[in-house]
Design a protein around this nucleic acid. Structure first.
Length: 773
DNA sequence: CAGTGAGCGAGCTTCCGCTTGACTT
């Protein structure tokens, strides 16, 4: 029997801590929250003062039973969940569910997984902070009320299965509004003047590039300026040198790791977290879901040693970073290598690269500032009042730059970090050429996943554990899509003054191509518009921040949690009911024009399954025709001609074996139907022009593949088959799948045996039911 | 994966935040 049971949230953490504590301690993990609100209904008893209806999460029943047994037999139970709102609630739930008495329970917390920190925590146990638990409860109940009242409203007013919530709806809003800004954006241009000069001294001739201190808004002005420069003299009027320094970025949090892995390694947010999870589980890095910039003293000490060994003591400058982000709860350390002296890890390329990034960032954060010397040379023009400026930068001490430099989302601007030749005031320069190049203003950038996370963190919406899932959710709901878009070619003008003559030419550049950027869909935009119209308070970018203030007051014991919820819910629920009764279904319907053949109206709108076109009004006599929009088409941009094309399907190709061969477009793209069998078209096949010949080819091919997939068929019942899948053979009966019991050989199963398996066992979950969990 | 779209209506969907394995067709 164990005297002490310690419960933490993560199993990897449990393993580490067990090593720090003696044999008297058994350390187990509860895998995060063990209880949640019932999902059957609202899960909140509103009439009784918003009393939550908690149940043990179905996937936690097993671990809860195990912990119950261990807790019963232990003398003391140490509740060591994270020291934040959610962690406190987990501790409280554990006490309840495991039936731990006050006298037997010890609540402890630590912010870093180091032996001194754990021992220190054991020395200072406390009770459960009920105010903090209530703050969590308020957060949980508010999110449930918002999500489970708004979502059904969307099902009724827009389309089924949609969702809305405090976090996801605001994330979608950011993307929709950015797209609107881009649409509204009016491009402007100006002429940037760059002069190429030559410095001739006694012993050498060196080039010097300088930019004019101002830009000209028109070609005429630029041309006039170049004209003024013909025959002018150029003289160095001033040289200014200023020292400057650059400091390293703080160590990684979840959000900055996602951003930097996206910029430097091209990882998606989900991929970064998957790889980081692996590194964490194998003990290579500290916890990867954190908003803390803190490094333990042990880690800083190790970093100091590592820097001294590799670069020398001059390169060391230890720092304690403090967080700036809204609502940070700092239950953990920043993300760092567990052993800072370990330079690389085993594993595949992505693991190595992510670890390398974390290692460099951690080490660099404890390195000296880089020292620079910034020089600006002012060049006067004898015939004009404008000045040319040549800017240079030299690094006098590289410091942390020796190892690591953070990237930015902005495109690299040119002309940085150049070294200037040595010059003196009064030096005359020879002009080689001066160019005026047309430069365009840039539209606001579209969000990458990581840029969206950055913005969400700034607004205080979402938490380190939810950034990646939220971004998946808004894509799964098809509110936004992550896509590449090709750019367009744009021409710009260049005027060149050389050898006393001004010439002009037109050049072209590729602009606006997008890679893995987030775009709103028609449904996303419509839902956003609907929510903005009726629930501005929830869509407000400051909504989370303001409720967080109230949660803090609850945590401080200054506000009663359900009183806060009541104040929110009253007006919110009224608004729900008003919208339910007072508004009609919204479909974003737009009249595109009329069909020249029939004279019927052609509309585009959102239907039960997404955007579609409709021919004919929905009146008593006639049923309108419908067709779904193709991938890549949008309600916003579809033309009448494109819409009319969509009505050309389904078309009958001919008759085979007394049955029509029909080409149509379905949910998953174009297909052929014959004798109630379906055959998908290839991407290269055009359903509008496909021939009977090609169609039979596709059908033969599919039949062959099906044949290969079939292990065994039975004459007794054609619905029962043994098929071969990715994970081996299985039984298929009436479109449900059943596992073959161990020890049975698929090929040898008889019809009766199969019938028995089907009757006795449950079908394996289809992917559809799994997705919904 | 499944191949739809009036309206009728049953019965389904849904939130955020904490954590990892299941076990796949």
């Amino acid at each position: 029997m164990t005297k002490n049971l310690v419960i933490v949230e993560s199993p990897a953490k449990a393993k580490t801590i067990e090593g720090f504590l003696g044999k008297e301690y058994q350390v187990k993990s509860c895998f995060g929250h063990i209880m949640d609100l019932s999902k059957k209904d609202l899960g909140v008893d509103i009439d009784q003062g918003f009393i939550p209806k908690y149940i043990i999460s179905p996937d936690k029943k097993k671990i809860v039973n195990e912990l119950k047994k261990l807790a019963r037999n232990a003398d003391l139970v140490w509740l060591a969940s994270d020291e934040d709102r959610e962690g406190e609630a987990i501790a409280a739930h554990l006490m309840d569910v495991l039936n731990i008495s006050e006298s037997k329970a010890r609540r402890i917390a630590f912010h870093e997984i180091t032996k001194p920190a754990i021992l220190e925590a054991i020395e200072h146990p406390r009770g459960i902070d009920r105010d903090l638990v209530n703050a969590q409860q308020a957060r949980r109940v508010l999110d449930r009320l918002v999500g489970f009242e708004l979502s059904p409203l969307l099902w009724k007013k827009i389309k089924p299965s949609l969702s809305a919530g405090r976090v996801q709806s605001v994330a979608v809003r950011l993307i929709v509004e950015r797209e609107e800004e881009i649409k509204k954006f009016k491009v402007g241009s100006s002429f940037r003047i760059v002069g190429d000069f030559i410095v001739s001294t006694k012993d050498k001739v060196v080039p010097l590039q300088a930019e004019l201190s101002e830009r000209f808004s028109t070609r005429e002005e630029a041309e006039a300026f170049l004209g003024r420069c013909i025959g002018a003299e150029f003289v160095v009027e001033d040289i200014e040198t200023k020292p400057a320094k650059k400091s390293p970025a703080p160590p990684f949090t979840t959000s900055t790791l996602q951003q930097e892995a996206s910029r430097k390694l091209g990882f998606s947010v989900a991929n970064t977290m998957r790889v980081a999870q692996d590194l964490y589980e194998s003990g290579k890095i500290t916890y990867m879901r954190t908003d803390s910039l803190n490094l333990s003293n042990i880690a800083i000490g190790m970093a100091k040693q590592e820097i001294t060994d590799s670069f020398g003591a001059d390169y060391v400058k230890t720092r304690k970073f403090t967080t700036r982000s809204k609502g940070a709860q700092e239950a953990h350390e920043a993300i760092r290598p567990t052993y800072v002296n370990v330079r690389t890890v085993e594993g595949d390329k992505s693991h190595k690269r992510l670890y390398d990034l974390i290692w460099k960032r951690t080490i660099a954060s404890q390195m000296a500032d880089a020292l620079l010397e910034k020089t600006t040379v002012t060049i006067g023009i004898s015939t004009a009042i404008e000045k040319f400026l040549a800017k240079g930068e030299i690094i006098t001490f590289d410091g942390f730059l020796k190892l690591y430099m953070e990237s930015t989302d902005e495109e690299q601007n040119n002309g940085e970090e150049r070294i200037l030749p040595s010059l003196n005031k009064g030096d005359a320069l020879d002009m080689n050429q001066i160019q005026a190049q047309q430069k365009f203003t840039q539209q606001p950038p579209r969000y990458t996943e990581a840029m969206l996370v950055k913005k969400m963190e700034e607004l205080g919406i979402g938490r380190p554990s939810t950034y990646a899932p939220t971004i998946s959710t808004i894509q799964r709901r098809e509110y936004v899509v992550k896509e590449d878009r090709p750019g367009v070619t744009r021409t710009f003008q260049v005027l060149t003054l050389k050898d006393g003559e001004i010439t002009s030419e037109e050049k072209s550049e590729k602009i606006g191509s997008e890679k893995a950027k987030l775009f709103p869909t028609d449904v996303g935009s419509l839902v956003n518009q609907f929510l903005l119209q009726h629930f501005m308070n929830i869509m407000d970018y400051n909504f989370t921040a303001s409720v967080e203030e109230e949660f803090d007051e609850i945590a401080e014991g200054k506000l009663v949690w359900n009183a806060m919820i009541k104040d929110f819910y009253g007006p919110f629920h009224t608004r729900i009911e008003q919208t339910l009764e007072g508004t009609r279904k919204v479909s974003g319907e737009k009249l595109l024009g009329t069909d020249p053949k029939t004279g019927l109206n052609v509309f585009v709108k959102i239907g039960r399954y997404g955007p579609m076109v409709q021919m004919g009004n929905a009146d008593m006599e006639n049923k309108p025709r419908f067709a779904a929009l193709k991938k890549g088409q949008s309600m916003e941009s579809i033309s009448l001609e494109e819409a009319l094309e969509l009505f050309k399907l389904p078309r009958t190709l001919g008759i085979v074996d007394n049955a029509d061969v029909v080409v149509a477009a379905g949910r998953f793209g174009p297909y052929i139907r014959h004798k109630s069998q379906f055959y998908s078209l290839m991407k290269t096949d055009d359903p509008l022009t496909i021939t009977m010949e090609r169609a039979s080819e596709i059908m033969t091919e599919k039949k062959k593949l099906d044949q290969e997939k079939t292990v065994k068929e039975f004459g007794e019942d054609s619905n029962l088959k043994i098929l071969k899948g990715k994970y081996g053979p299985y039984i298929s009966f009436n479109k449900l799948n059943y596992k073959i019991p161990k020890g049975k050989v698929a090929e040898e199963l008889t019809f009766e045996e199969c019938r028995k398996i089907v009757a006795d066992s449950k079908p394996t979950k289809s992917s559809k039911s799994r997705k919904s969990k």
